[in-house]
Amino acid sequence: MSLDDRHSDDLYGGTGQTRTRYPDSPAPDPRRPGRSPSRSLITVVGVVVLLIAAIAFANRGGDSASGGNQDSGSAPKSSSTAATGTKPVGAGFAHDEQGAQSAAANYAVQLGSAEMFDKAKRDQIVDTVYVPQAAAARRGALDKVYSSESFLTSIGLNKDGTAPNGTTFVSRIIPVGTKTTAFDGDTATVSIWYSSLFGLAGEGAKNPVSESWYTNSYKMRWISGDWKVEDFTQKDGPVPVGRDQRASTADDMAKAVKEYGGFTYAR
């Protein structure tokens, strides 16, 4: 699904309830593999470190490591997860707190997607997600990270960024919840708690798909009739306790990746 499709009436279509829409045709999406005792700690740590180095560093910029925890405050209210009854606008996101949360959640999905490893798609995502000044400032850093042969080969991809034969590259963000920590009409700060799936699905994959948990805090600005990202910070967790589930086979994982599409609209 293109980013332009996100603004179509069909996508927003509306019952007034909290929504998650799926694409009409299958697209890659993995399921979490259960943790296997045979998986080495080195492999797991390596995947997490590489993912943070590529995505968090490139998107956040050099000076955004501080101030990542902006989520202190009062306990959440019951309305946090209730449907707002507000129908999304026909183009862009609503000019209110719900719209800011929707924009941030969907932008997080795009910034954490496998499409960021494709130059043309990455440029489109950056231009759509960020305010113009931030997009121009980040493009060079993103190009450097995502085109680095040493990085690509370290995570199991070929030097041109493609997945080895018989494998499917997975990079997915699944928002679990959002909240607005600040709002002032044309500016907002939105925190997103999410799970990240990253790795290669397929027999003999160097870095099997693994799961990580993060919270991102996005500084949003209303500009040209839509919410855009000015900057964001990232912190680990909260991380739930893992269940004792049996790891799926490589064939099952690859099949799931091909059959299940990712979220195209959240909250």
Rank of each mutant, 00 (worst) to 15 (best):
A250L: 07
H95E: 04
R19L: 12
V44M: 07
V190W: 04
F198I: 00
A54G: 09
V239L: 10
A135Y: 10
L142Q: 02
S150F: 08
S148P: 07
G90M: 01
D29V: 14
A205V: 14
A134V: 05
A188N: 06
S79D: 11
L152S: 00
D244C: 02
D252F: 07
V190N: 07
F169M: 00
R35T: 11
P33F: 03
V45T: 15
G46C: 10
S2I: 04
Y194V: 01
H7N: 11
K228W: 04
A120G: 10
Q110T: 03
Y107P: 01
L51Q: 13
Q133P: 00
V229E: 13
I52W: 07
R172E: 12
R246G: 11
T84S: 12
G185V: 01
S8H: 14
A254G: 03
Y130L: 08
A266G: 01
G204A: 01
L41C: 10
P26E: 15
S148A: 09
G61Q: 13
P164H: 10
S150P: 00
V44F: 05
P240V: 02
V44N: 08
S154K: 00
S79T: 12
M1Q: 06
Q133H: 08
T178W: 05
T81F: 12
S40V: 04
F232N: 08
A54Y: 04
S74D: 13
Y146G: 00
S72C: 11
Q70W: 11
D251G: 07
G177Q: 14
G185F: 09
S40A: 05
A58C: 06
D143R: 15
G92I: 03
T233N: 04
M253F: 06
D231I: 04
A100K: 02
A163P: 04
Q101G: 02
V241H: 11
S36L: 10
F117E: 05
P33S: 12
F117M: 14
N106C: 15
P164A: 07
F198N: 02
A205S: 15
G73S: 15
G237T: 06
Q245K: 14
I174E: 13
Q17T: 14
Q98E: 10
P33K: 12
L50Y: 12
Q101D: 01
R246H: 09
S72G: 06
V131M: 14
S154A: 08
G99A: 05
Y107D: 06
D236N: 08
Q101V: 03
D63W: 02
T20H: 02
A105Y: 08
E97I: 10
D244G: 01
T181I: 09
S148R: 05
S248F: 10
A100R: 03
K144C: 06
M220S: 08
G156P: 11
S148M: 08
R246Y: 08
G68A: 04
V190A: 09
V145W: 01
D10F: 14
